[in-house]
Amino acid sequence: MALNRDGSSTLFSASMAGTLRLIVYLALACVLMVIDHRNGWLAKARYGASVVIEPLYRLAGLPAEGVDAARVAFADRTKLSDENQRLREALLLANARLNRMRAVAQQNARLKQLLDTQHSLGMNVQLARLIDVDLGPYRNRVVLNVGQREGVKAGQVVIDAHGVMGQVIQVMPHTCVAMLITDPNSAVPVTVERTGLRTVAYGTRGGSELSLPTIPVTADVKVGDKLVTSGLGGGFPQGFPVGTVRRVSPDLSGMFLSARAAPAAALERSGDVLLLRDLAPPMGPPAPAPQVGPPADLAPGADTNDAHKQGASH
């Protein structure tokens, strides 16, 4: 409000001009109130002004909305990341448990096979577990978790549910070392199951096959023939599976046939094995068969006159 130099208000001055201006202002205010009350013009004006001012409000509020949106997005992302991490850990744990259950199921199946083998053998056997392996081009041996304190002796045969694995060669107080049949120093007397041919299966370098180098040329040996222990020498009991013939070919000299066989036992997969307590006795020359038939004095070609003489004397 304008003030005079003496500090008095011009609107409420005693002059006529100030009074007229006051009346005009009051009348204008009354007219505006009446018009606004009847027609709502001021509301329309405020609406139009809001149309112009609202974008400015929105523009001014964008930084705050952006900050809020970023905070929410970061919180959601962190929450989703944590949840994904928990789900990933749960999935890994579930897979580990599933694999463990699968491994336990396979182990139970192998133990069941060993138990069935034990019942079918009707022999005194001892369960053992592999705790170490010593595989190489010149050694093919395993360490078992039983030893002298458990009654293990050198020479005991080691088998699994599929066939002969090897033989114990060294005994410690609570462990023992078994030489597998694929060891280069191993030799197992075997018989070709189909024909009854007797030969020896040797271990080879690399420890994956058996070698049969001294088969007669005239022998009937074919791919797929099964090899079983012959029992000769007393090291391995008779009748246990040893391997299956894979290849047969003449040797370099041409005087013998040479064959290669795959071991019947799961040498690289077996974890539980059986030790045979009952060792096979050494097999020597066959004992003479008892005589069957008529007495020697009545055999064809015997002197019947002597028989008649003996009957007459009686």
Score class of each variant (00 low, 15 high):
M1R: 13
A2K: 10
L3H: 08
D6E: 13
G7E: 03
T10E: 00
A27Y: 00
A29Q: 00
A29S: 01
V31Q: 00
R38F: 11
N39G: 05
W41L: 08
L42Y: 06
L42K: 07
K44M: 10
R46I: 06
Y47S: 06
V51F: 10
I53A: 11
P55A: 13
A60R: 08
D68P: 05
V72C: 15
K79G: 11
D82S: 09
E83A: 15
N84R: 15
N84S: 14
L87M: 12
L87F: 15
R88W: 12
E89R: 14
L91W: 11
L92G: 13
L93I: 13
L93F: 08
A94G: 11
R97W: 09
R97Y: 11
R100T: 14
A103Q: 15
A109F: 15
K112L: 11
Q118L: 12
G122P: 08
N124S: 12
Q126Y: 04
Q126D: 02
L127V: 09
A128M: 12
L130R: 07
D132M: 05
P137S: 03
N140L: 00
R141E: 08
V143L: 04
L144F: 02
L144W: 01
E150G: 01
E150H: 03
G151C: 01
A154V: 07
Q156M: 09
Q156R: 03
H162C: 11
H162A: 13
V164L: 06
V168T: 03
V168M: 06
Q170L: 05
C176R: 02
C176I: 00
M179I: 05
L180R: 02
A187Y: 11
V190Y: 08
V190S: 06
T191F: 13
V192E: 02
V192K: 01
E193Q: 13
L197I: 05
T199P: 03
G203S: 14
T204H: 12
G207T: 02
L210Y: 05
T214E: 15
T218H: 14
D220E: 14
V221F: 07
V221W: 09
K222F: 04
G234S: 02
F236C: 05
F240Q: 09
F240A: 08
T244I: 15
R246K: 15
R247Q: 10
R247V: 11
G254R: 11
L257Y: 09
S258M: 10
A261Y: 05
A264E: 09
A264C: 08
S270I: 07
L274V: 11
L275R: 08
L276S: 08
D278N: 04
P281Q: 13
G284S: 09
P285E: 13
P288M: 12
P288K: 13
Q291H: 06
Q291T: 07
P295L: 07
D297C: 11
A299F: 00
A302W: 03
T304A: 07
N305V: 03
A307I: 00
H314Y: 03
